[in-house]
């Protein structure tokens, strides 16, 4: 691999923890302030892109990310059915904030890993040449 520009590496390295912090802030405060699962998850996906910009190495398996995404999708489908649609929250409103935070977290992780898989697919795409056949 060709060596990367030092400026890019430094700036991305400086911004990396702040992007992580912003993602967690957007997810965990989604029911108080603007933000939420989708926005925080997209910020997490930005972390994958930043990692690729500094370290263009395919050492992270997209299969594992995809498995985690499917797992969290199952949680997104199961938790509202058990908690929301069963009428559990109507009687116990003190758990509502917890439910909202949990759902935001699930959606954030799902969206982040999903877009991460997409980014890795694009970044380590083999290329369309004359050898390309379906």
């Amino acid at each position: 691999m060709a060596e990367r520009s030092l400026i890019t590496q430094m700036i991305v390295g400086l911004l990396y923890p702040f992007m992580l912090l912003l993602g967690f802030y957007l997810i965990l405060n989604g029911h108080y302030t603007p933000g939420g699962g989708f926005q925080g998850g997209s910020t997490f996906a930005m972390l994958f892109v930043a990692r690729y910009v500094v370290f263009p190495v395919a050492d992270m398996s997209s299969e594992h990310l995809h498995l985690l995404q499917r797992l969290f999708l199952a949680l997104i489908l199961v938790v509202p059915i058990l908690v929301l649609f069963s009428g559990f929250l109507a009687g116990a409103s003190e758990y509502s904030g917890m439910y909202l935070t949990l759902m935001d977290l699930f959606i954030g992780v799902q969206v982040g890993f999903g877009l991460g898989v997409a980014v890795f697919r694009f970044a380590f795409f083999k290329g369309i040449g004359p050898s390309w056949r379906f």
Binding site: Q39, S42, V49, Y52
Partner: peptide, 21 residues
């Protein structure tokens, strides 16, 4: 503001970096 955050993160960050990659 929610849409603004989504647009700033995805349109201005993710898509730009993806295009550059």
């Amino acid at each position: 503001p929610e849409l603004a955050i989504a647009e700033a993160v995805i349109g201005s960050g993710l898509v730009t970096l993806l295009y550059l990659v």
